[in-house]
Simulated assay, not measured.
Amino acid sequence: MTQTTTAPSVSAVAASPAMPSTLRLGLSQAAAENRTFFRRRDAMIFTFSFPIILLVIFGSIFSSTVEGTGLTVSQLYVAGLIGSATMTGFQNLGIGIALNRDDGTLKRLAGTPLPPAAYFMGKALNTLLVSFVQVVILLAIGVALFDLDLPSAASDWLTFTWVFVLGVLGSSLLGIAVSSLPRSGSSASAVIAMPFVVLQFISGVFIPARELPEWLSQIAAIFPLKWMCQGFRAVFLGEDGATLEPTNSYELGRVALILGAWVIGGLVLCLTTFRWKSRNDG
């Protein structure tokens, strides 16, 4: 008599591996963004060299001492360009994401399991690194060529930290939001770069705040760059620099309030305006 073997009534099903956390995916995305950035050597060299060239040129031409202070105009440029470097994410993310949307990269990412938060975290952390490297280079040049004194008080470096972090976050979120404005990737540079250049001139990067017409100062006060520059002047120019401010004060409390508001406002703008598809995709 032939014996038959009865197959198990329940098949063993292998459990699917759990998805990594959003934080872990965000850090992995940041590592990928950093590798991509540093492999594009032409873009990397331009990103780091442009503020250096501006500082050396402007700092060398305008090297006189500011009347009534022990500061030079060159030192004012160091603080201003540090603010500009901190806002690099506005331009880089605005243009870069617009190009990614136009070439279909965002559309493909939207179809993967990658959480949107991880994608944006990777972009923001890459911007944080790039801006930090730019700031370190500008400080080194300021110390070596323009007699900039680095602060010795821990409170000054604490101020530097929160101005830098809030500035990078706010400008990165704003860059992500404005990436939806250009109608195509090819027009992104013109649409986004021009406002950034204008902001630099009216926010105290190249022209001292007290020398600007009041109406321009009022426009600049709406945007974060003015307050970032003001915060960095507080760190690196000290009490002598406070006399150059329109209110004879750095108003650090107001700086923190407005930069924090831009972080929240930038997040709201991203959530309400960001598009994964280009206009041509409907």
Rank of each mutant, 00 (worst) to 15 (best):
D42N: 09
R35D: 08
Q75N: 04
I61H: 05
I53C: 04
T65M: 12
I61T: 09
S74K: 11
T88Q: 08
A79D: 07
R35A: 14
T47V: 06
V56S: 00
T65Y: 11
I45Y: 15
I53N: 03
L55C: 01
L27N: 04
A32S: 08
Q75I: 09
N34K: 12
A30N: 02
S60K: 05
T86C: 02
F38K: 08
V73I: 12
T72S: 15
F62T: 10
R35T: 12
Q75E: 11
R41P: 10
A31Q: 03
R40A: 15
E33G: 05
E33D: 14
E33L: 06
E67N: 13
F46V: 15
G68T: 12
S49P: 06
E33F: 04
R40E: 15
L81A: 03
R35Y: 10
E33Y: 07
T69G: 11
I52A: 03
G26F: 07
A32N: 08
V66L: 15
A43M: 13
R41T: 13
A79W: 08
T88S: 13
P51K: 01
I52R: 00
G80A: 06
T86N: 02
S60N: 14
M44W: 09
P51T: 01
Y77A: 09
I52Y: 00
Q75G: 08
Q29A: 15
N34L: 10
S74C: 10
I52C: 03
L54G: 01
S60R: 10
L55R: 00
S84H: 08
G83I: 06
I61P: 10
F62Y: 15
F46N: 14
N34H: 13
A30T: 08
I45F: 12
Q29W: 10
V73M: 15
T72A: 12
F48R: 06
L27T: 03
T86F: 01
S64Q: 15
Q29G: 12
Y77I: 09
S63W: 05
R39W: 02
S84F: 11
P51N: 06
D42C: 04
Y77L: 12
I57T: 07
M87C: 03
T47K: 06
G83W: 05
R35W: 07
G80N: 11
G83F: 06
Q29V: 14
S63M: 06
G26V: 04
A43C: 08
I45E: 11
A79M: 06
V73W: 10
G68S: 13
R40N: 15
Q75R: 02
T69M: 07
S60D: 09
E67Y: 11
S63F: 07
I52V: 12
T86L: 01
A43N: 14
T88Y: 13
Q75A: 03
T47S: 14
R39M: 07
E33I: 02
T47E: 05
F50D: 00
L27F: 10
V66G: 14
R35N: 12
I53E: 05
G59R: 04
Y77P: 13
T86W: 00
Q75H: 05
I45A: 14
Q75W: 05
I52M: 06
V56I: 07
G80C: 09
I52S: 01
T65A: 13
P51Q: 01
F38S: 05
